[in-house]
């Protein structure tokens, strides 16, 4: 009896294509055009690539895109999250181990580098790697060979390395937490993906893309988005970037009752979004701070933002802040309006 094959590998690639689309193909922001262009050109080479960007900006998709467009595409693509594997285990995960190399190593085991032979290995959160392992990785990049834990032999591997970090590795190097030589070895082709809030013009395009995608996955009613709800999404800062946006759209499509995403159906944190920047994040300097003044400023900013969101409706603003209307009015009277420091024109 033949086992049911879920589908030809082509559909796998198509899936990645589709997944890459919103990040690279459909993005209109000039930065994203450039990234796509670089990825296409770099794919045909074997250069090491370092992808930087906040979490959720699509670093792994970029790696998969490069792999899918390279001559290695029919060989494995292996993703390793260096931050998710305990440091003690990471070395043997990456390079394998011999029988008896350490307690519990009952048999020898192949490492991910070996499994990725002929293909691409994606080392995510490379900044989390211990100093000892950084040295070993540098050796691998230079010599193109690995040494399994406890082995006295080395094994040649043909693997393209794509590394990624959500920390600024240049800063990590300055602080002495990341080896400079390894950094330069990895940074042959540096690609930085800007966070979504720095390329807001892509938000409406991404929203529409994910709506189409998730509508397609659930046949039945087509979910649309109301214009003002779209504006709210456009204004939100998306700390979790594209991943957060897609998760939200998927949830909205599933939960939608009448086929339209409205402002009311958005989660409260987006509906009454208060930008981080509007709320001062007080820092306690050596000179100390005036706590009362800091608290007052914090309070004022929140009140101001609530009033802005509710177009000056004090009742609604008070509700947003969990205050009684009279309390809000009293606070406003005490502070005077518009005279708070920080506001310019």
């Amino acid at each position: 009896m033949r086992l049911q094959w879920p589908g030809p590998p082509v559909s796998f690639l198509t899936h990645f294509w589709r997944a890459m689309e919103p990040f690279l193909v459909k993005g209109t922001h000039p930065v994203m055009e450039k990234i796509l262009n670089i990825c296409q050109r770099v794919a045909v080479t074997d250069s090491t690539v370092l992808v930087a960007g906040e979490s959720g900006t699509g670093k792994e998709l970029i790696a998969r895109f490069i792999h899918a467009h390279s001559r290695r595409s029919s060989n494995p693509f292996i993703a390793v999250n260096c931050g998710a594997i305990p440091p003690d285990l990471l070395e043997s995960e990456m390079f394998g181990h011999e029988r008896g190399a350490f307690t519990g190593a009952v048999g020898s085991r192949m490492g991910l580098f070996q499994l990725a032979n002929g293909g691409t290995i994606f080392l995510d959160e490379i900044g989390e790697m211990t100093a000892a392992l950084q040295v070993k990785l540098l050796r691998v990049l230079q010599e193109r060979e690995i040494r399994p834990v406890g082995a006295d032999r080395t094994i040649k591997v043909d693997v393209r390395v794509i590394a990624a970090s959500n920390r600024d590795l240049a800063t990590e190097v300055e602080k002495g937490r990341f080896r400079e030589d390894l950094f330069y070895r990895l940074q042959v082709i540096p690609i930085t993906v800007p966070p979504l809030r720095e390329r807001r013009s892509d938000i409406p395009i991404l929203v529409q893309h994910f709506l189409d995608k998730h509508n397609q996955q659930r046949p039945g009613q087509l979910v649309r988005i109301a214009e003002d709800a779209m504006v709210h999404l456009w204004e939100y800062d998306w700390p979790g970037n594209v991943r957060e946006l897609e998760n939200l759209i998927e949830r909205m499509v599933i939960l939608s009752e009448d086929g339209t995403i409205r402002v009311d159906s958005l989660p409260p944190n987006i509906r009454s979004f208060i930008s981080d920047k509007k709320i001062p994040r007080p820092t306690l300097t050596d000179e100390g701070i005036d706590l009362n003044q800091a608290v007052e400023e914090f309070e004022y900013r929140l009140i101001d933002e609530a009033l802005r969101r509710t177009k000056g409706n004090k009742q609604a603003a008070a509700r947003l802040l969990g205050l009684k209307r009279t309390t809000l009015v009293a606070k406003l009277r005490r502070k005077g309006t518009g005279s708070a420091q920080g506001y310019v024109i």
Partner: peptide, 26 residues
């Protein structure tokens, strides 16, 4: 939205400058 808050103005400008810097590096 006016009235403009200094901190917010600078942060928004810096976000755009950051994206420009990334663009140049790319």
């Amino acid at each position: 939205t006016k009235p403009i808050n200094r901190r917010e103005l600078f942060t928004r400008i810096d976000a755009q400058l950051h994206a420009r810097a990334i663009d140049r590096q790319l």
